Simulated assay, not measured.
Amino acid sequence: MGQPFARAADRLLARLLGPGQDRLCLDLGCGGGVQAATLTGLDWRLIGVDISTRQIDLARRRGLTAVVASAERFPLADQSVDAAATIMTTTDFDALPPVFTEAHRVLRPGGRLVVIAAHPASAAPSSNATTGAPAPSTPATASIGASNNAPCSVTGSAPASGPSTSPCLSC
């Protein structure tokens, strides 16, 4: 991830997650632990998951507690984390609904899932291929499934009675 995107992702994490107050955050698709310093700097305790053994080895060398696991089945108990964050990883998953469903499973009531992703148009080196406008310089973001028991932060609708396959989880 380039430096401008990394700095933008750090700012978004700070804004969307806020202070961790020593609560537990799942770094979903943690890779080599690039965002660990930002998350721990916000006073979150971390556990990282990634499918790559090589990346998990790098993350562990950085001091991150991390495990090799599929994004469709974390080795974590139901309602065991206070927050989950996935940063610039949405294009790495075969399908997002199972990933969001699994994140919903491990989030405690009131937990938050933060997704930070780049819009495909930002892959253009200097302009939007359709309009010729400058390419976006920051990642897009959404805080979805913000709570296991509160109205959806995106639509305001009432929460679902159980896990949903909707990307919003609460809808």
Rank of each mutant, 00 (worst) to 15 (best):
V106N: 06
L42K: 08
R60L: 10
R73F: 00
P19V: 08
L39T: 10
P159K: 14
M1V: 14
G145C: 09
C25T: 06
L26R: 05
I116H: 05
P134R: 06
L107C: 13
M88K: 00
P139S: 08
A129Q: 05
H119M: 08
A129K: 02
S147W: 13
A158Q: 13
A140G: 02
H104W: 15
T101S: 13
F5V: 10
T65R: 15
T131P: 02
V154S: 04
Q21V: 04
T101D: 07
E72R: 12
T86H: 00
A118L: 09
A117C: 15
M1L: 14
P167V: 10
E72D: 12
P134M: 06
G31H: 02
N148I: 06
L39P: 12
L107K: 12
L17G: 01
S137Y: 00
I116A: 08
S147Y: 12
T138V: 05
A140Y: 05
H119P: 01
P139Y: 08
A83C: 10
G132A: 08
D50G: 04
V67I: 04
G20I: 07
L26D: 06
V114P: 04
A150L: 11
A36H: 02
L76A: 06
G156W: 11
A133F: 00
D10A: 15
A69F: 03
A6S: 13
F93S: 01
A121Y: 00
D78I: 02
P120V: 08
G20L: 07
R105D: 11
S137F: 00
P163G: 13
T131Q: 02
I47P: 03
S80E: 03
L26C: 09
L39V: 11
P4D: 09
R23E: 06
S164G: 01
G111F: 03
A123T: 00
S166T: 09
L12T: 14
L58P: 01
P159M: 14
A160N: 05
L24I: 11
P139D: 06
R62Y: 07
G63H: 04
A8K: 04
V154L: 14
G145W: 14
I51T: 09
G48T: 04
V154H: 13
S166V: 00
A95C: 11
G18L: 03
G132P: 12
G41R: 11
R61C: 01
Q55A: 14
V114N: 01
T89F: 00
R60H: 09
V99I: 13
P167T: 02
P151A: 11
G2Q: 11
S147A: 15
L17W: 06
A158W: 09
C30K: 02
R7W: 05
P4Y: 10
G132L: 10
G145T: 07
R62F: 05
P109S: 04
S164Y: 03
S126F: 06
F100H: 11
T130F: 07
D10R: 15
G32I: 08
T165N: 14
T141K: 00
A77R: 15
A129M: 07
S161N: 11
G162A: 15
Q35R: 06
V67Y: 15
G2I: 09
D78C: 05
S70R: 13
A103V: 15
A118E: 03
P75L: 13
D43P: 00
P134A: 12
R45M: 04
H119Y: 01
P151T: 13
